[in-house]
Computed example of a mutant assay.
Amino acid sequence: MKGGWAEEEALAFLLHKGYRLLGRNRRTPFGEIDLLMEKDGVHVVVEVKQRSSSRFGTPLEALTPKKVERLLKSAWYLLGRDDLPVRLEAVLVHGTPQGFRLEHLALEV
């Protein structure tokens, strides 16, 4: 997995912030959820995007409205309901394993 290191860094970052891991790389008919977490009683779907440079776009540019919609549908599919509190977040990883920075943000639905 090319970006596996980025997902590991994102997971460690979120665990340090008090998130609890519920699942990883969970496939649904709508796509894959990188990290399914829980924080303060809310299910959190986390998309991890990594880019070593902005030559082909930034990690944020890869989070299209269509991708966000698929993430939300995937969350509801996994949780079995569409009325549970769910938050969509992203951890954007800029750089390589030799040097990177993380950006954590909530996604608007």
Rank of each mutant, 00 (worst) to 15 (best):
E8G: 06
T64D: 12
A90S: 00
L35E: 12
P59T: 12
W5V: 08
R87V: 00
L22I: 03
L60S: 13
L36D: 14
R20S: 03
L11F: 01
T64S: 13
E69V: 07
L72K: 10
L15N: 07
R101W: 07
Y77A: 09
G99T: 02
G23E: 05
G57C: 09
R24S: 13
V45L: 12
V91F: 03
L63T: 08
H94K: 06
V109Q: 07
L102G: 04
K49Q: 13
L14W: 00
L92Q: 08
N25V: 07
P65R: 11
E69R: 15
I33F: 11
R87A: 06
A106P: 04
R101M: 03
S53H: 15
R81V: 08
R101L: 10
L71M: 15
V45E: 06
L79N: 04
P97K: 12
W5R: 10
R70A: 12
E61V: 01
G23H: 08
G57Q: 13
M1Q: 11
E61G: 11
A75E: 05
E89Y: 08
D34T: 12
H94M: 07
V93E: 06
L84H: 06
L35M: 15
R51F: 07
V93L: 07
A106G: 04
S54I: 13
L72M: 06
F56I: 10
L72S: 03
Y77T: 08
F56L: 14
A6V: 07
H43S: 13
G80M: 06
E61K: 11
V91P: 00
P65Q: 09
H16W: 10
A75P: 00
N25H: 11
L78K: 02
L36N: 13
L79K: 09
A75F: 01
K49F: 13
E47Q: 09
L107C: 03
L88H: 02
V46S: 13
T96H: 03
